[in-house]
Write a protein that binds this DNA or RNA. Structure first.
Length: 681
DNA sequence: TTCTCGAGCAAGCAC
DNA sequence: TGCTCGAGAA
């Protein structure tokens, strides 16, 4: 019944079948961490734990999808040979935030939350902070005061790292240390405001989950629902998440975590690899198993990874070794004249690999920042090479998408001041001032039932210019759900009410209306509109295409991904773009030593993704305006991570500006420019 | 009060 | 580049 254990090596099998309560699996890139973890889940279920009592936690949506998929197919496999019936129920798999959200919805009332509470994304949260910031007159002091984004960052780090605000301010924004009192006061008001309006931000999801798990009555119930918790990529946990785990494991200790401290890349959201390395302080009974063998990549690729880790001041803990006997070509370090040449080189290389029989979807283009692929995406469209992009939040940021999400939120939570503020301003002649006046009359923060807010609309509408009142009445009318009306038809009515506003407020209305139709159809299977809104917030679709479901199997497309979103995944071929200082490492990370080391680990993550071929591209010139007509540019230096030792693991390729054939020396003009550029530096 | 336009500035990765 | 903020016009 555990036939598939044969496919594991000895170390992996030991991890999968470990018989104690608490296990930590430490392993380098490509050593089959997730394989071991999914095998363990299958083994746990095989040994009698019902699937729905196993919880599998990850940090990114993509990792969550990947994990569920692998668990499902392993369970399907292991059921076949013995003709056993597949266990009923599903493993509870998802990101910390999505599982937290499910728990909160189920126990909202017990936790003191309104049933239709709204979930805020980072942008919404920043807007609420900005509201508070203005009210406190922080902006008007005449001094430089942190902006909403910085304030949210300070607040969020403090919460996630469970550290006093003063400490965080000193670390992240020492320049405003003497304004600590004001910052603290804004944080306090921000918390109160959210409570009053039934709003929940990403951090609140974790805070309420922890509160639920620690609650005298609710806690034991939540804990006993879960027989075993598995956590992937444990090097990415923050202090708050460790707290949640501890609270959930007070009565039943069973817990398995896997991680690799050399791939810790989420410091910016309060994560620290110390939680993995010093796990004994949170879970003293933890046992450890190490996985050493790399199954993913060939030795020349691992040589790059090992050279990178040699360069790290403290050295990463793991050295990678490949299966012997694989004959493989060395990675290529491609120097291109500029970004246009880089794009051409990537396209040519992608197509060349495809000719060799490596499908597009077995190739990935990795970028440090989502916008680094802008030029490439243009060129791919011109050449009609299909691609899917992961990472980046563009779709959700599209204004009309936020509009309908706000409308869905408002339908369940009439106190959602932020949603009102946004939607009212879609009306002609309504700006911040009139919107605020109308909201004041609505009394979103007044005691009483949420429904009473809508009853005050009759008065609030008087604050709007008379020409817009009728349109406004219509969409507020649509907010009320009729007796016995299904969520689906309610969502249709809301969309109908929004459509004229969208047409009036934005151009290219056709594409936007199509998006609204897709988003509305997603609401048909839901039990609550606020759930639909929250799901979209926690799991924003990549593009409109995503809403139509997965493309059919015979289609082929190139993968473009940020390095962050690529963690835990692998491809036959990886193209890493913009390996130039300032891009990778990002110049924003260079102010601190920790920042630089995190960039180095990120680079390490990137080069350990490919199975067979790694191409790293270094454009030597960057245009300030890549799509502009002028020739303003800056000279790029190769990434500092490409030290002599690291670069020595590559075959060097130079491409000139007008010729993308390999092995042509860099042209003299550019060389001169580079030498000169060094003078101005 | 809203809307439009130009100057100045910040810019990312993620749930 | 593209967004935010302030100044000025409708």
């Amino acid at each position: 019944m555990f036939a598939d254990l044969d496919r594991l090596n000895e170390e992996q099998r030991a991890a999968a079948t470990f018989d104690g309560d608490q296990l930590r699996i430490l392993a380098g890139a490509g050593t089959g961490k997730t394989t071991a973890l999914t095998a363990r889940v299958a083994w746990l279920i095989g040994s009698g734990i019902p699937p729905e009592r196993v919880m599998a936690l990850t940090f990114t949506r993509r990792a969550a999808r990947e994990m569920s998929h692998r668990i499902e197919s392993r369970l399907a496999d292991s059921a076949k040979p013995t003709a056993r019936r597949r266990p009923q129920g599903r493993v509870v798999a998802g990101t910390f935030h999505s599982i937290a959200h499910r728990t909160l919805r189920r126990h909202a009332v017990a936790l003191g939350l309104p049933e239709g509470f709204s979930v805020l994304d980072a942008g919404d949260a920043a807007d609420v902070i900005d509201l508070v910031r203005e009210e406190q007159g922080a902006a008007a002091t005449g001094r430089r005061f942190p902006k909403k984004g910085t304030l949210l960052d300070l607040y969020s780090r403090s919460v996630n790292m469970q550290q006093p605000l003063s400490l965080v301010v000193n670390e992240v924004a020492p320049w405003c240390a003497d304004q600590l009192e004001q910052v603290a006061s804004i944080c306090r008001s921000y918390v109160n405001r959210k409570r009053l309006l039934g709003l929940v931000d990403f951090d609140d999801l974790l805070l309420y989950w922890r509160a639920a798990a620690a609650d005298e009555r609710l806690g034991p119930q939540l804990a006993s629902d879960v027989a075993h918790i598995c956590v992937d990529e444990y090097q990415d946990v923050n202090a708050l998440q460790v707290d949640v785990l501890r609270a959930l494991r007070t009565t039943d200790p069973r817990l398995t975590v896997v991680g690799d401290d050399s791939q810790a890349v989420y410091g910016f959201r309060g994560a620290s690899p110390r939680h993995l390395l010093d796990i004994g302080s949170a879970f003293p009974a933890m046992s450890t198993i190490l996985l050493g063998h790399n199954y993913r990549s060939n030795q020349p690729i691992l040589d790059v990874a090992n050279a990178l880790s040699e360069d790290a001041p403290e050295g990463f803990t793991t050295r990678l070794r490949a299966e012997p006997g694989s004959n493989a070509e060395r990675p290529r370090l491609v120097r291109c004249a500029d970004e246009d040449a880089q794009v051409d080189a990537v396209c040519e290389q992608v197509l060349a690999h495809r000719e060799e029989g490596i499908a597009l979807r077995e190739q990935a283009v990795l970028v440090r920042a989502a916008h680094h692929s802008d030029l490439l995406e243009l060129e791919l469209s011109v050449r009609r090479i299909p691609y899917v992009k992961y990472g980046g939040l563009r779709f959700l940021e599209a204004a009309h998408v936020k509009d309908i999400i706000c409308l869905f939120r408002l339908a369940d939570n009439p106190r959602d001041e932020l949603a009102w503020f946004r939607l009212l301003q879609l009306l002609d002649g309504v700006g911040p001032v009139r919107a605020r006046r109308a909201i004041a009359v609505l009394g979103v923060d007044q005691p009483g039932s949420p429904a009473e807010v809508l009853m005050r609309w009759r008065l609030a509408v008087e604050e709007l210019p008379s020409a817009s009142r009728r349109t406004a009445d219509l969409f507020v009318e649509a907010l009320r759900r009729a007796d016995g009306e299904s969520v689906g038809s309610h969502s249709e009515r809301l969309r109908d009410a929004l459509e004229p506003l969208i047409i009036a407020a934005y151009d290219n209305a056709d594409a936007r209306l199509a998006d609204l139709a897709a988003l509305t159809s997603a609401a048909h299977n839901a039990t609550r509109l606020s759930d639909v809104a929250a799901d979209l917030t926690l799991e924003p679709p990549n593009s409109t295409g995503d809403l139509a479901g997965p493309p059919s199997i015979d289609e082929d497309w190139l993968v473009i991904s940020t390095v962050h979103s690529a963690k835990g995944l692998e491809w036959d071929v990886v193209h890493l773009l913009n390996a130039a200082d300032g891009n990778f490492p990002s110049d924003m990370a260079l102010t601190s030593k920790e920042g630089l080391e995190e960039e180095r680990r990120l680079f390490y993550v990137a080069v350990t993704r490919p199975r067979r071929h790694l191409h790293v591209y270094v454009p030597l010139r960057f245009h300030y305006r890549p799509r502009g007509r002028d020739d303003d540019h800056t000279m790029g230096q190769p990434s500092r991570f490409l030290s002599d030792d690291v670069a020595g693991c590559f075959d060097a390729v130079h491409l000139s500006r007008h010729d993308t054939r390999p092995d042509i020396a860099i042209d003299a003009g550019i060389r001169v420019e580079m030498e000169l550029d060094a003078l101005w530096r």
